[in-house]
Amino acid sequence: MSDKQTNILPVSAPSPSGRAGVGKKSSFIQGEITSEFIGNSIAKHQSKTTIGAHNIFLGQVRADVIEGKTVAAIEYTAYEEMAEQSFYEIREAAFAKFDLTCLHIYHSLGLVKTGEICLFVFVSAPRRKVVYEALEFLVEAIKEKAPVFGKEIFEDESYTWKKNT
């Protein structure tokens, strides 16, 4: 391990509710993120009664048409160890910047068909204004910093590599 680089490991410092175990549990989900999973995540917050506002971003796989061919699915791969580290750092930056109660990031790996959800970002705070800003900050940071790659698979099974725009 290089001494010039920082590898932040989760420590057992006192953490606000919703942050326990941050950095240990995976942000990756195999395949699509289902509406059941999203619904259950919302339900789990009913016991956290200091929360007054949630905001949710859902990324959905779009049927782009590229050179006359229609995308049928995206197959996601990632440099998983580095991506988990990126998610952890993005989470820490968001907690430092915004007054949040908790936040969650989930990203798909493997095949996600068009119309299915591949990214689920969920922020909660006592008051509403902060959740709009925090969510945009998080989604933009994830797109910029997480080493996740998408193979856009066409209906005829040929493919191209997706680039974020």
């Binding site: 010039k4 990324g59 580095m82 990203h107 990214l119 797109k143 997480a146 590599w161 974020n164």
Partner: peptide, 19 residues
């Protein structure tokens, strides 16, 4: 200009496409 040393892991990363 970063200096790579023995036992380092070097990853070649194409443009990111998360989300």
């Amino acid at each position: 200009d970063y200096i790579v040393k023995d036992q380092d892991v070097v990853a070649f990363l194409p443009p990111f496409a998360g989300g």
